[in-house]
Structures are given as structure tokens and as C-alpha cells.
Amino acid sequence: MSEAISTRSEVKGNDAKAGRLKFANIGRYTLVLTLIVIIVLTAIGNPRFLSTNNLLNILFQVSALGIVAFGQTILLVSAGLDLSVGAMLSVAGIVTALTIAATGSVLLGVLAGLATGLVIGAINGMLVATNRATPFIITLGMMTFLQGVAIIISGGSPVNGTGGLFDFIGFGSLATIPYPVYVMAIVLVVVFFLLRNSVLGRYAFAIGGNEEAARLSGIPIARIKIALYAINGLIVGVAAVVLTGILDSALPNMGTGYELRAIAAVVIGGTPLVGGRGTVLGTLGGVLLLGLVSNSMNLLGIGANYQSAVLGLIITAAVILQRPR
């Protein structure tokens, strides 16, 4: 009798696992199908959509968002979250621009921007590791704080004088491909191998899957969280340097909205907010989907209000197609 009950339990467990995998596959196929439909319909409506210049322009436009989203993926697979990445991007960008303006050195400016992101990310990690509040609340508070810092250190005005960085990032290209696209690709590869081929990545998935079980298995939860948030901050610093170079200036609000769009791209790409699974390649698909939708609607003459509505529907559908573990 007990053997029969055990067998039925195993069958139910296997069925549940198969159901989860089937649902995950549906989400991935839906993303791919949506991308294809957008491409075909826009190409029919405006043949310029498939031109090399336009496709490179899409990649150029989403480069900073993609970099931020890749860092957010690291956190979400570990059941973490960082709502301060937009404000962090603004602060790191302003520090980059101020350093270049003060020293005349692009290298020092870049290093200052990266260090700013790394330090803020590490602070976020230390606060989250205390477990006294959820990452949502902690990073929401940090977002508000950093928004104020950005205004204070910039004087509420754009910080100009990044000519060298602008010449390289804003105008630079290799084999007709803009440099920001290369930077996005490099960050993508680094994050991919970090999540799939490193101890830190395995720990991130373990913590996201079941933090208590990970703690009982001997994983140093606090140290791993600090490391993950620090890496995310460093990646945001990279995005800040890229965006500052593209804009040829740093604005106190230039990162506004990046936190929500980055999370949207990660979720659309198949990484659930509850953590435990996900892939940076899926995030890339989510980033491209957001970029394609915006570009397609611009080419088809659709207003910004409708763009927001469509993006909202896509994000909602992506969440619905996900199934909790």
C-alpha cells in the first residue's frame, strides 16, 4: 500500500515538473513568436525597418538598457531586486562627467564611474544581506536617496565636457557597428558565463530556488548577496559610462525609468520575480522586444501613448505566461 502511494506521489511530482517545463517553453516560444510577428508586420508597413542602418540603430538605442538588464538578471535569479539602478546610473554618470571635466582624463572618468556603481551596489548588498527588510523596500529607499544625490552633485543641471568619451562612444564604431553594441555584447558574455560556469552563479540560482536550503547546505548567503549586488552596481557603472558617452553629458534624471524597463526586459525574457531560474539570453530577447516595439511604432507613426499601452500589455502577458515554481 505504501509503495502504491509512493508511486502515485512520484507520478504527480513528475507531472507537476513536466507542467512547469511546458509552461516555461510556452513563454519562450511566445517571446520568439512575438518578435517575429513584430518584424514581419513592421517590414510590411515600412520597408526601411529591415535596413542595416535601422537594425544597428535599434541595437545602439537599447545598448544601455541591455547592460542594466543583464545586471538585474543576476539579482532576479537569486530572488533579489534593485529598484535603485536608474538613480545609480544617474549618479555614476554625473561622477564620470565631473571627473572628466575636472581632470581632462577620459580614463579617470570611466574608472570613477565604474567605482561609483561598484560601491553603491556593495552598499545595497550589505543592506539587503541584513534581512531586516525586503530588497524592494531597501532599494526603493536607496533610489530616492540617490535621486537627491544626483541633483545635489550636478546642481540640478546637465554636466557637459565629456568630448573625448563622446567621440569614442557616441560616434565610434568598428565594422559599422557602434561601440556601445560591443560593450553590451561583452557584458552579455560575461554575465552568461558568470551565471552558468561559476560558483557564484550556481550559488545565485541556489539562493533563488530556496534560500533556507542554501543556508543549510553551507552557502554563505550574506557574502554572496553582497557580491551579487556589487557586480550589479559595477555593471550599472558600465551602462552609465556608455549612456554618458552617447549623450555627451550627464543629466541628474538620465536614468529615470531604467529600473522598471530593465525589470520588464528580464521578466519578458523568462526570469521570474521569485528567482531560481532564468537566463541572460532570455533577457536579451526581452530587451530586443522592447526596442523593436518602440522602433516599429515610431516607423509606423504610432503615438507615444499607444506605445506605452502596447508595452504594458506585453509585460502583463509575459508575467501571466510565467508559472511559479
Rank of each mutant, 00 (worst) to 15 (best):
Y182W: 06
P178L: 02
M88W: 14
G45W: 14
G275K: 02
I263K: 03
V91T: 07
G86Y: 10
G172Q: 04
L273K: 04
V287S: 11
L55Y: 14
A133W: 03
I263P: 02
P178Q: 06
V191L: 09
V62Q: 05
G113Y: 00
I224H: 00
V128D: 01
L118N: 02
Y229G: 02
E212D: 12
R261Y: 13
P47S: 08
I38T: 12
F168N: 10
A250H: 08
I177Y: 06
V189L: 15
A4S: 12
T7A: 13
S51Y: 08
I226N: 03
L288T: 14
K225M: 01
I224Y: 02
R325Q: 10
V77E: 03
I58M: 13
K12E: 14
V11F: 15
L146A: 07
I315T: 02
I314W: 08
V236N: 06
T244N: 00
Q72C: 07
G86E: 00
S84K: 00
I67Y: 00
T103V: 04
F192T: 11
F23C: 15
R277T: 01
V37W: 13
L288Y: 06
I169F: 02
L33Y: 15
G170V: 09
G172I: 03
M143C: 07
I26T: 09
S294N: 14
T244W: 01
T103Y: 08
L65T: 07
L127Q: 03
L299S: 02
F205V: 00
T271H: 07
F171I: 09
V187A: 12
L41E: 11
L140V: 10
L321T: 01
P252Q: 15
S173Y: 11
S51C: 07
L31M: 14
A206D: 05
Y203I: 01
I137K: 10
I314L: 14
V183P: 13
G104I: 05
V199A: 09
L50P: 11
L273D: 02
Q61C: 11
V68E: 02
G66W: 06
V91P: 00
T52I: 09
I186C: 12
F49C: 14
N14M: 15
I58E: 15
L228I: 00
G237N: 03
V199N: 11
G164Q: 05
N160E: 14
G45E: 12
R215T: 08
L188R: 08
R8C: 04
V106W: 07
G276F: 01
A222R: 14
M143R: 11
P135S: 02
Y203F: 10
I5C: 10
G148V: 12
G141W: 13
G255L: 04
A262N: 09
S78V: 05
A115G: 08
T279G: 14
G141F: 08
I5R: 15
L313R: 09
S105N: 10
Q322D: 06
V106I: 14
T42N: 07
D248G: 06
V274H: 09
A214C: 05
T271M: 08
V183T: 07
G71L: 00
G121E: 10
S173F: 13
A43N: 10
A92L: 11
L234W: 05
V77D: 01
A102C: 01
D82Y: 10
A264K: 09
P220M: 09
K22C: 10
G237M: 00
L118T: 05
G209M: 00
